[in-house]
Design a binder for these strands. Structure first.
Lengths: 189, 189, 189, 189
DNA sequence: AATGAATGAGGATTCATTCAT
DNA sequence: AATGAATGAATCCTCATTCAT
């Protein structure tokens, strides 16, 4: 029976994310994670079976946090408005937490990712799918497969985020509107 | 004396790409690359100073090859037609050579990438920029920054490619048209 | 948790010296050192950053030990007596610990020696200098530069030691007196 | 049947000596020797069976050259004069050719030295022995073992040479006399 | 004989994981 | 539970030597 000191786990997660930002997933060493988190090497193994499990836990937790940051409870609003809000909060979240973004991006192609986490729905996945379905029913979104529409939205979102982060640009109202307009023109009926 | 053997370099490159497809960049071992290429471990080091330089060479070569595969000499055609052809050849290339795509995707976030290669323009970069400029002059493309437009096109392209590859789908005429239509609706004026 | 183990360091040092005696500095392998010291390969790296640092530590420690073995606290005795005692203890130490002598001799011309250790004063250096100065003041030693006098004493000592060790000869009272007489005749006023 | 291109061999020997001066024996690589000598790697192996034989050949040749440089044909002169001349030419030779001196010093403790070369008489060996014997007969040199006397002479010589080379000092008449006087006082009856 | 590309055994070092305390 | 010293399998790279040309 482990008390599971949540503070310690948070410190470990934060250490993983911070270090990934500076040295990448491949440069992560358990010793460094432990030092950064302020615990002993061995302690990592009282909370996680091994490195793989630790990183997958971080991934899983970030995914959940990401969805929460992006999806608010405004399911009653019109589809386009909801999409806009989602677009805005996604951009803000991704750009504000570049270290987390880097971790996610690196982890997805790392040898550590588990089958379970591979299957984990895309960040905006399920929520987006329902939204797009509604849009198609309302005939304001093209009657195309969700995969295609989602590829456009998330692909563009990731690339644009990377561009903003790499150039140290802020997420202004103008940038949100401008980029959303592009997406919308693509998918609108 | 044996002359320096270009075929051997090709075999080494092919080995790197093939192995990356199965074990990822992080799982690449020099010994495995040598065995797969049919040469001795030491031979790798007569052609490349170290692992980092080898992988960067593969990256650089794939970038060049990719651009050649995508950009044909049809600069006289109308902008939209050229974009369509580019879209089609990009999709076909990326989906036909998934191992290369995986290598590129993994390498970009690996600890091996050199500063020079980090700066290497995006696969479709320069050619695309000229094309978009022309489209803006002809008032058929939105007067937005190239970065934004390119983010949409390449982000969507990468994500859609991944979707097709992951699900083992072919690049049919219908899929090319369908996906290009989305892109075009996004960027057209 | 096990505390950092000084005995382990001693075992490692002893292993280095013993192995150098049989295979020379150039034949030293970290794996062999570890096995001889009864630790794992990796353990060497918890105590020393790398091979170079390990060997330099051994060198530094031997230098200190050597000085202690040779210089006793008899600073009040007449110069000639002190020189004689020093000569005697030097010979005995060097001949009794031939493995250490071999290590020192090999290390000095090895590629491992650090700049700091290169500058490390000669084994008998500082103490000898003061002694020689006193002798010159008392007009019983030739008024020549210390470098010259020290070259004679230490050069002779090293060569003679090597001779004794190579031929398996003991350091008898007669040999000490005989050799010291030569040195003394050289440097006396 | 090899023509044994002597010029090529000289170039190889010179390369070995020059490189040893800069990188030490342990840093010598066959490839570097070949490049420095202006021949192909494989060529080294048409003249020498392997690295060990090459280095031993260099050593053997330097020994012969050294003796020639030091021992002139003045066997009729008085013992002290001969010793002085020998001392002078030794110092001059050793200080003028520090690279050769370094090679000799390094080679003697290297793992490459053959049993034959180990036994090779000391640089001044045989000639010196005869000279000392004559001196003892003439009762102008102490009636001690040659090993002892030779240890003093060669040990001092080597150390003093190293001192001069390390400090970039020239072999002046004064230095020769000063140092020889020390030696002579040591060994004279 | 000369060449130099190719070889591959060998050795230093790393780092996830264990376990005595 | 927490610690961190110790472990040793794994991997990159070197370089003396070979051999096809």
């Amino acid at each position: 029976m482990r008390p599971r000191d949540e503070q310690k786990i948070d410190a470990i997660f934060a250490a993983v994310i911070k270090l990934t930002g500076s040295v990448g997933i491949a440069g992560l060493k358990m010793t460094d994670i432990a030092r950064e988190a302020g615990v002993a090497d061995g302690t990592l193994y009282t909370y996680f079976r091994n490195k793989e499990e630790l990183l997958n836990s971080v991934y899983y937790q970030l995914k959940r946090k990401g969805v929460l940051a992006i999806v608010d409870g405004s399911e009653h609003l019109p589809v386009k408005i909801q999409l806009y809000k989602m677009w805005e909060s996604s951009l803000k979240y991704l750009v504000t937490e570049p270290a987390e973004t880097i971790f996610l991006e690196h982890f997805r192609v790392s040898p550590f990712i588990s089958e379970d986490n591979k299957k984990l729905s895309q960040q905006l996945g399920q929520y987006l799918e329902r939204l797009l379905e509604r849009g198609k029913e309302e005939m304001i979104i093209k009657p195309l497969s969700n995969e295609l529409l989602i590829s456009l939205l998330t692909g563009f979102l990731k690339d644009y985020t990377r561009h903003l982060v790499n150039h140290g640009l802020k997420v202004t109202e103008a940038r949100v509107q401008e980029s959303f307009a592009l997406s919308w023109d693509a998918i609108k009926a």
